[in-house]
Amino acid sequence: MTSVAILGTGSLGKAIAQRYLNEGVTVQTWNRTRERLRLLLELGAIELSNLFEVTAKCQVVITVLRDGPVTAKVVRELGSLQNTTLIPMGTMGVSESKNLAKQVIKQGGSYLEAPVLGSKPQALSGNLLVMAGGDVTIFEQHYQLLNYLCKRPKLVGPVGCGAATKLALNQLIASLTHSFSLSLRLIQQAGVSVETFMEILRPSALYAPTFDKKLERMLHRHYADPNFSTSLLRKDMTLFLQETAVNGLEDLGLKGLVQLLNQAKGTELDAQDYCALHELTKVSE
């Protein structure tokens, strides 16, 4: 039976672990906050009491941690990665992923970045989108594990390509949400019915499903129970800005959006659903 270690059991990591358990995969899991393991242990996961025992029990280690620096720190604590493949699924910068790959190789292991698009519902149903970066042989070796989470996992290129693809997609999340918020604000101020606006928008080439997904949250200011928070969105947009600087891209518009997201720091919006940025586009009173 396949056995995999999952390090990091926040909302997404927990859902990924649940999906594997439902598919008959033996899941060994770890989190610095032990309370977050309770549900998984009740479902049959095996607790790893410390990081040193991870690679002795599992040849595949999946990390679903907040960012690149945290992931690198945890991986260092694993010690030797001999005969082990590390598969980070959290969002990282391109250079962060490349550096982590070098670190893993120095520790004796192999590396396959596999960031995912989607959140808890998609993870539980096996409908995440996986964009892997790494060696084709390693990708094929672990294809079935990825296939439990995604109908058609894609190898988009060598290490760094997966990270770049994920950042590009998350940039669209931020920009589409921001532009939709501004449009809603304008039509409401002008006295146009939101329903009428949506009836015009939906059949047009401008429509994106995320608009309807977030519409009710924005209209009713319901940002609780996030699958992806404002603070994480800001973190990813900051990473994207780092890549624009490296690649010589014009990023003036995105800088303005990051400045807007910075206004959420230290407020309740930071821990809420990312569409809470709608609160930041409101007309000044």
Rank of each mutant, 00 (worst) to 15 (best):
A17S: 09
A17V: 02
T26S: 12
T26G: 07
V27K: 04
N31Y: 01
R32Q: 07
L40E: 01
L41K: 02
E53D: 10
A56S: 15
Q59T: 15
D67Q: 05
A72H: 01
R76Y: 08
E77R: 12
G79H: 04
T84N: 10
P88T: 02
T91M: 01
E96S: 06
K98L: 08
N99S: 11
K102D: 13
G118A: 00
S119M: 05
A123L: 01
L128T: 09
D135C: 11
Y143V: 06
Q144W: 00
L145V: 10
L145N: 09
L149R: 00
C150T: 00
L155K: 12
C161S: 14
G162V: 01
A164E: 03
L169K: 06
N170C: 05
L184E: 11
Q188N: 14
A190I: 13
V194H: 15
E199R: 06
Y207F: 13
A208T: 12
D212M: 06
K214T: 11
E216K: 13
M218D: 11
H222L: 10
T230V: 11
S231M: 11
L232A: 07
D236Y: 00
T238V: 05
Q242W: 05
E243N: 00
V246M: 05
D251F: 03
L252F: 08
A264H: 03
A264K: 03
K265I: 06
K265M: 08
Q272P: 00
A276K: 00
